[in-house]
Amino acid sequence: MFTDQNTAWDRLLDGNRRWLEERSTAAGDRGAARRAALSQSQEPFALVVGCADSRVPAEILFDQGLGDLFVVRTAGHVVDAAVLGSVEYAVGMLGVSLIVVLGHEGCGAVAAAAGVVDNAQVPSGYVRDIAERIAPNVLRARLDGATTPSEVGAAHSLYTVDLLRERSSLIDRAVRGGKLQTVAAQYCLSTGEVAEVRTPARLAAAAA
Rank of each mutant, 00 (worst) to 15 (best):
F2G: 15
D4G: 12
W9C: 08
D10L: 12
R11E: 11
L12I: 13
D14C: 07
D14E: 15
D14A: 15
G15W: 03
N16Q: 04
R17E: 15
R17Y: 07
L20Q: 14
E21H: 09
E21S: 15
R23I: 11
S24K: 02
T25S: 08
T25P: 04
A27P: 02
A27S: 14
D29R: 14
D29Q: 10
A32E: 12
A33T: 12
R34S: 11
A36T: 10
A36D: 12
A37D: 10
A37M: 07
L38A: 08
L38G: 07
S39V: 15
S39F: 07
S39R: 15
Q40L: 14
Q40N: 14
S41P: 01
E43F: 10
P44R: 00
P44K: 00
P44D: 04
P44S: 05
P44T: 05
F45G: 03
A46K: 02
V49N: 03
A52W: 03
A52G: 13
R55P: 07
V56Q: 01
E59N: 14
E59Y: 05
L61R: 01
L61T: 06
L61Y: 05
D63T: 08
Q64I: 07
G65N: 01
G65V: 06
F70D: 02
F70M: 00
T74M: 03
A75W: 01
G76M: 04
H77V: 05
V83P: 04
S86Y: 04
L94C: 11
V96C: 09
V96Y: 02
L98A: 12
L98I: 11
L98M: 12
L98Y: 10
I99P: 05
V100D: 01
L102A: 07
G103I: 03
G103V: 05
H104C: 09
G106R: 01
G106L: 05
C107P: 06
C107G: 10
G108V: 08
G108D: 07
G108F: 06
V110A: 08
V110N: 00
A111Q: 10
A111C: 05
A113E: 02
A113V: 07
G115N: 06
V116I: 09
N119D: 15
A120S: 14
V122S: 00
S124R: 11
S124F: 10
V127Y: 04
V127E: 08
D129N: 12
I130D: 01
I130E: 00
A131V: 10
E132Y: 04
R133E: 14
I134L: 14
R142S: 12
L143F: 11
L143Q: 14
D144Q: 13
T148A: 08
T148I: 09
T148H: 03
P149Y: 00
V152N: 01
V152R: 02
V152T: 08
G153C: 11
A154I: 07
A154L: 03
H156G: 06
H156C: 14
S157G: 12
Y159K: 08
D162K: 08
L164R: 03
R165V: 06
R165K: 10
E166W: 00
R167L: 14
S168I: 06
S169H: 05
I171S: 01
D172Q: 05
R173G: 00
R176Q: 15
K179A: 15
A184N: 02
A184S: 12
Y187K: 04
C188I: 05
L189E: 09
E193C: 11
A195L: 13
R198F: 10
T199R: 14
A201M: 13
A201D: 06
R202Q: 10
R202C: 08
L203H: 09
A208G: 14
